[in-house]
Amino acid sequence: MTLNPLNIILFGVVLLLAVGFYGLLITRNLIKIVLVLQILVKAVVLALVLAGKASGNLGLGQSIAATVIVADTIVAVVALALAVQVRRRAGTLDIARISTLQG
């Protein structure tokens, strides 16, 4: 096992992913959930560039990473808009308090 930079970046990606998923599981504030999703996106962007680098096709990796950044920013914007609307209509951001649909 050689410690090349890519190994360490893979470690970083997995670390960010783990933190992000853990955050998704334990967070209850809607805005924070959007924020945590952004951590996951960072991890994915890093992973895409890493994959491009590892396969010797960095341009491709870069290109889709750039696209992903923009696309997921849009998702974040819509999510924030939804959160704002939830706050206006339901009066709270706590997902446990807006869990009326069950069963």
């Binding site: 090349n4 491709l60 290109s63």
Partner: peptide, 23 residues
Amino acid sequence: YPLVSQPAANGEVLLANVLWKQR
């Protein structure tokens, strides 16, 4: 992990080319 154990040689391509042309 096996993916990154043996990285390939890097072919540098300009992002603008890839993004606006190929993609």
